[in-house]
């Protein structure tokens, strides 16, 4: 997988990740932003203590490990509907629709 693809996956991931840098150091935390449409592409993250944001350029990243629990896993509205349908003995449920925004805005 290319670095760009790994970064995109980390950006979509709802858990902490470990960014391993080319100098061997590591930053653990939540990667909330990435921007490739700038001269020096970068990611941004808050560390596990919530400190930051830290900006790290793509050039400094060797790889990213998915080390934290995915807080979205199995938590989509569609998954909830599926579970409900399953409980009712239904045979069919809609395909997962991914993250759902809050319903109170």
């Amino acid at each position: 997988m290319s670095l760009e693809a790994v970064v995109d996956k980390a950006f979509d991931y709802r858990g902490n990740v470990t960014v391993v840098k080319t100098d061997g150091s590591e930053t653990v935390g939540y990667l909330f932003n990435r921007n490739r449409d700038v001269p020096v592409p970068f990611v941004q993250m808050f560390d596990v203590n919530g400190a930051g944001p830290y900006t790290i350029s793509y050039l400094e990243i060797r790889t990213i490990r998915f080390t934290g629990r995915d807080t979205a896993a199995g938590q989509s509205y569609a998954a909830w509907l599926r579970a409900k349908e399953a409980a009712k003995g239904a045979l069919h449920a809609e395909k997962d629709s991914g993250r759902t925004p809050p319903r109170d805005a």
Partner: peptide, 21 residues
């Protein structure tokens, strides 16, 4: 942060340090 956990709500699906911010 929220005091409910509505099914599928993407706003609360973050690691603890983000929910504390």
């Amino acid at each position: 942060r929220c005091n409910l956990a509505c099914a599928g709500c993407g706003k609360i699906q973050y690691p603890a340090q983000i929910l504390r911010k």
